[in-house]
């Protein structure tokens, strides 16, 4: 048996980075990959997700929606907090992985720490944003009239290209805190932490299908994310005017909500807030008859 301390005889076991769909880690059905470089070195072969992967992910998210939106807000908060706990325990791994993808050590540490804090932040909001955004409306009839937010459904997220972990975590957390399920497309240039983050989700008892993460080409998948009739909202973070136009055109098919989050420095407090949750909520107004 090889001496484990001797680096010359111990062969490192590298991780195969796959997709995260319906609580499982499949390879892309297309069998396509792209090499991820750090300078001249290839650090991983990353799945080039396809149209069909997107379809599978949306089907999984739709299937998970009834259950996830039906769990109590309190439980959703606990699960988000649990994600933070799991991420904290593996923070060294995430720092190392971000460094591998080109970040400085200091930046990587900040990115992981803020990601954890952001999860705790949204864990706190799960049972509070309803109270902030709900209203009792004065009406001139014998009705008790009130408005409450409800999750919109399946949200696709084209996560920020420049922020591989934090940008993804911020957007996923806001969507699922509000009871939505989501399909996220990871940063093309920094996809590794996104896939490792799904292992954290998996360990934190997030039900299968609530979060699905794909890696791949934006040019190829944006249309799928925006056009799919079973998607209720799309979050776009990169701010490219031509892509934005394409998204709006496709989103018009079923009047998807289009949420743009551009020019946000995710490492600051500007990258969080209850309004991020509100973006993917629908408001339901109820007229309840009262006596008199």
């Amino acid at each position: 048996m090889a001496d484990l301390k001797d680096k010359n005889t111990r062969l490192a076991v590298g991780k195969t980075y796959k997709l995260y769909i319906d609580g499982k880690f499949p390879r892309t059905e297309s069998g396509r990959y792209y090499p991820l470089h750090n300078k001249d070195e290839i650090i991983a072969n990353v799945c080039l997700g396809s149209r069909k992967d997107t379809r599978e992910a949306v089907v999984a998210a739709r299937k998970a929606f009834a259950g996830w939106s039906g769990t109590s807000a309190y439980l959703r908060g606990q699960i988000l907090y649990r994600i933070a706990e799991m991420l904290e325990g593996r923070s060294e791994q995430f720092v190392a992985e971000l460094v591998k993808q080109g970040l400085t050590k200091a930046k990587a540490r900040t990115e992981v720490a803020v990601s954890i804090d952001r999860l705790v932040y949204y864990a706190g909001w799960t049972d509070k944003f309803q109270q902030v955004f709900s209203s009792v409306n004065p009406v001139s009839s014998a009705h008790f009239n009130f408005t409450v937010p409800e999750p919109t459904g399946v949200v696709t997220i084209i996560a920020p290209e420049e922020s591989g972990l934090l940008g993804l975590v911020s957007n996923i957390a806001a969507a699922i805190a509000g009871g939505n399920t989501c399909v996220a497309l990871a940063s093309y240039s920094m996809p590794l932490s996104a896939i490792s983050f799904t292992e954290v989700l998996h360990a934190a008892d997030v039900p299968a299908g609530v979060v699905n993460v794909l890696t791949g080409s934006r040019a190829e998948l944006t249309e799928q994310f925006a056009a799919h009739m079973d998607v209720n909202a799309i979050v776009y973070c990169d701010g490219d005017a031509a892509v934005d136009r394409e998204i709006q055109l496709h989103a018009a098919n079923n009047i998807k909500r289009v949420v743009r989050r551009t020019g946000i420095d995710w490492s600051t407090e500007k990258g969080q807030g209850p309004y991020f949750i509100r973006d993917t909520q629908e408001f339901k107004t109820t007229w309840h008859p009262v006596g008199g």
Partner: peptide, 9 residues
């Protein structure tokens, strides 16, 4: 249509 559909419709 080339677009994936939703049971809602």
């Amino acid at each position: 249509t080339g677009v994936y559909q939703s049971a809602d419709y």
